[in-house]
């Protein structure tokens, strides 16, 4: 009886989580010219309009480049820091960990204000560079957490074996450590990319006028009215943000599989 209630409750919660998403996808195929019910038919016209909308395509490019740069920089920083924390006895470890995850604990609005005001004080105006710096700061903790969790699992014996068999430290790093770390690095990059791609809170503070990322573009479009085009954009975003991690997981598993065999 109790279990039955728990199951029903969980079912309702899952429904609550998925219902809005399902409605967005459903409405994006709506033939009617208003983004609303009742649906009058199935059509791909909103996707066609989406892909001919110059502003949205530009936002996509901006988001993509920003996400990619963010992912690369914050993964390099995060992987190096994680290696230090996992592999070495670092004095003041608790403080260092706390500093590295600080951007998660500080409200993003405050982080956004601080960076904007400080860089402006240094006479640096809002720019793509400022956006990139901001995104690196708030994705770094996630990379550190994800990479650390994976790094712990890599045994040091492999490297010691390589070294004792005559490889020098550089060879050992590139031929043993790096391939073993590849799934962790990949997971970190993917995480950083997705978080950067999705961000709006900080982005609205840092973006220069005229530059839009996909979320800020959607936000700007929402001010007018909710057109079916936004739903189509939502569907594309859902496919991307859900598809990428799934693809990433599959690739990571294959990479891990290759190393194990």
């Amino acid at each position: 009886m109790g279990w039955f209630l728990v199951r029903g409750w969980a079912f309702l919660v899952y429904l609550f989580m998925f219902l809005p998403v399902a409605v967005v996808v459903l409405l994006s195929f709506n033939a009617s010219q208003f983004g609303s019910f009742p649906m009058t038919g199935v059509s791909l016209r909103w996707f066609a309009e989406l892909f001919s909308n110059e502003a949205i395509l530009r936002a996509f490019r901006t988001s993509f480049i920003l996400g990619l740069c963010t992912a690369m920089i914050s993964t390099v920083l995060g992987v190096l820091a994680s290696m230090a924390l996992v592999r070495y006895k670092v004095p003041g470890r608790a403080v260092i960990s706390m500093l590295l995850i600080a951007p998660i604990l500080i409200p993003e609005v405050v982080l956004a204000v601080a960076l904007l005001l400080f860089l402006n004080f240094l006479s640096l105006n809002k720019s793509f560079g400022m956006l990139l710096m901001g995104h690196v700061v708030f994705t770094l903790p996630f990379v550190v957490l994800v990479v650390q969790a994976r790094l712990v699992a890599i045994k040091r014996e492999y490297e010691e074996a390589a070294l004792s068999l005559g490889a020098n430290p550089v060879q050992t790093f590139f031929q043993i450590t790096l391939p073993l770390m590849a799934p962790a690095i990949f997971a970190g990059m993917l995480f950083a990319f997705t978080i950067s791609f999705d961000d709006i809170t900080g982005t609205l503070f840092w973006k220069p006028g005229g530059v839009e990322t996909v979320p800020t573009q959607i936000f700007a479009m929402l001010r007018n009215s909710i057109s079916p085009e936004i739903n189509a954009l939502g569907t594309v975003m859902i496919l991307l943000t859900v598809g990428l991690p799934l693809l990433g997981a599959a690739i990571a598993r294959r990479m891990a599989g290759k190393i194990n065999t």
């Binding site: 998925f18 791609f197 999705d198 996909v214 959607i218 975003m237």
Partner: peptide
């Protein structure tokens, strides 16, 4: 849903 864009 966790991965799906917050604004969407």
């Amino acid at each position: 849903p966790f991965w799906i864009s917050y604004i969407i």
